[in-house]
Simulated scan of single mutants.
Amino acid sequence: MKKLLLLIPLLLLAFTSKYTPDLNNFLQPVKCSKVLHKTSFDICYSCKYKYPLVVSYTLKGDLVKKKISRKGLRFRPDYNLPAKCRSYSKDYSKTGYDRGHLASNASFDYDRKIQKETFLMSNIAPQKPNLNRKYWAKVEKFTRFLAVKYKQVEVVTGVCGNKGHIKNKVGIPAYWYKIIYIPELNKTVAFLTPNTNVGMSKAKLKEYKTTLEEIKRVCNF
Score class of each variant (00 low, 15 high):
Leu63Val: 05
Ser93Thr: 14
Asp22Arg: 07
Ser104Asn: 07
Leu120Trp: 10
Leu7Thr: 05
Lys128Asp: 08
Leu73Lys: 11
Val153Ser: 05
Pro52Arg: 02
Leu36Lys: 02
Phe221Ala: 11
Tyr51Gln: 15
Leu10Asp: 14
Tyr181Cys: 01
Tyr177Ala: 05
Glu213Pro: 01
Asp22Pro: 01
Thr20Leu: 03
Phe221Gln: 14
Thr211Phe: 05
Pro194Arg: 02
Ala174Ile: 07
Asn80Val: 09
Arg144Phe: 10
Tyr45Ala: 11
Phe75Val: 15
Leu23Glu: 00
Pro77Cys: 08
Lys60Arg: 14
Arg76Lys: 15
Ala83Gln: 14
Tyr19Met: 11
Phe75Trp: 15
Pro21Tyr: 00
Tyr19Lys: 09
Lys71Val: 11
Ala83Ile: 12
Lys34Tyr: 14
Tyr51Leu: 15
Lys202Asn: 09
Asn197Thr: 04
Cys219Met: 14
Gly164His: 03
Arg133Trp: 12
Thr157Asn: 11
Leu12Arg: 12
Tyr150Asp: 02
Cys47Ile: 02
Leu120His: 09
Tyr110Val: 06
Leu102Val: 05
Lys116Ile: 15
Tyr97Glu: 08
Leu59Gly: 10
Glu213Asn: 08
Pro21Leu: 00
Thr193Asn: 10
Val155Thr: 03
Thr196Gln: 02
Phe142Ser: 12
Arg112Ala: 10
Asn25Gly: 03
Lys169Glu: 05
Leu13Glu: 09
Pro183Arg: 08
Val139Ala: 13
Ile179Arg: 06
Phe41Met: 07
Arg217Glu: 14
Thr16Leu: 01
Tyr49Glu: 12
Cys219Ile: 12
Val139Ser: 07
Leu131Cys: 02
Val155Trp: 02
Val170Phe: 01
Lys202Gln: 10
Trp136Asn: 03
Phe221Met: 15
Arg144Ser: 09
Phe41Asn: 10
Lys209Glu: 15
Thr20Arg: 03
Ile8Arg: 12
Lys48Leu: 15
Thr16Asp: 00
Glu184Arg: 07
Phe191Ala: 01
Gln127Leu: 02
Tyr110Lys: 07
Asn130Gln: 13
Asp22Leu: 06
Leu10Glu: 15
Asp78Glu: 10
Ile215Gln: 06
Arg70Ser: 05
Leu185Val: 10
Ala125Gly: 08
Gly100Phe: 12
Lys90Gly: 03
Val55Ile: 13
Pro129His: 10
Val54Met: 01
Leu36Phe: 02
Lys31Gly: 02
Val218Asn: 08
Pro82Gly: 14
Val148Leu: 09
Tyr57Arg: 08
Leu192His: 11
Tyr88Met: 03
Phe75Lys: 13
Asn186Gly: 01
Asp42Cys: 08
Glu140Gly: 08
Tyr110Pro: 06
Asp22His: 11
Leu12His: 07
Gly161Tyr: 04
Gly199Asn: 00
Lys3Tyr: 04
Asn80Asp: 15
Lys90Gln: 06
Ser201Gln: 14
Ile43Leu: 03
Ser17His: 00
Cys47Leu: 04
Pro77Phe: 11
Lys84Cys: 07
Pro52Trp: 00
Asp62Ser: 09
Leu73Phe: 13
Ser69Arg: 14
Tyr51Pro: 11
Arg112Tyr: 10
Gln115Arg: 06
Pro52Phe: 03
Tyr45Asp: 08
Lys216Thr: 04
Cys44Arg: 07
Tyr45Thr: 07
Lys34Leu: 15
Lys134Gly: 10
Lys84Asn: 12
Ala14Arg: 05
Asp22Glu: 09
Ser17Asn: 04
Asn24Ala: 01
Arg74Met: 11
Leu120Ser: 06
Asp78Ala: 10
Asp109Cys: 13
Lys18Phe: 06
Lys206Phe: 12
Val159Phe: 10
Met200Cys: 04
Asn132Phe: 01
Thr118Asn: 13
